[in-house]
Amino acid sequence: MLVSKNIKPAIWENKTGKVKVRIVAGISEQEKYGPSGGWYIFGNNRLILGPDHTDKTGWGAKKPIRIPEYHPQFYRFRGFVFLNAEDPRDLPWNTSKTNMDLDSPVYRTVLQQMIVMMRTVIDFLNGLHDESNSFEKGLIKSTPLQKSIDDSTSFELSTVITTKKYVSKDLFLFPEPAKRIAPNKPKPIWLRFEISSKESELIQEYFDNDDLSEIGREIFDYFAMREIGTK
């Protein structure tokens, strides 16, 4: 997983119940077809599910918050869930131990937490995508999100989990995106219509003005003043 001064995977732990849970969510290298992206769920250190891109692990979720479907923008996403129980029967897996039991109260809690945690990673990856577009269009001067990736180091998951300074409690940590150079002014809307040359002559004469764009504005203002009023 990638870690830097301002990128830290989110970690969440619950050791109070029969099932001990640890969830880690962050990013890794970009792969061409994204085969390793997604969630991995381990039960007593055995991989039960993953890499998973389905609603079983929150992709396309609607509750408690919306999560998009897995797609290339999220290839960097890596999430790991470690469930450990003294009695394996307490683990939220199905009877053949090959998949998650989606109705288990334990898994419902875990999944709710996974969804909230993946959201910040997805926000970062969406931001990264927007950043590269905005930079190409000259709307921003710097690319702090890309830079945070360039400055990051790839660590083994086991190192990340055991090193306190490499992780961030509950929330994936990432830098503030760059501010747009020009403030987002509301976009002007263009109104066009066709008139005949006869009509154009008449109104040019009426307004004593040759500039049709100015005349167009006058016509609109005249209408707006009478029919809409000042706001």
Partner: peptide, 11 residues
């Protein structure tokens, strides 16, 4: 409903 999910593993 959200609390029900959240409380799944609470003592």
């Amino acid at each position: 409903a959200s609390l029900r999910d959240r409380n799944g593993m609470a003592a």
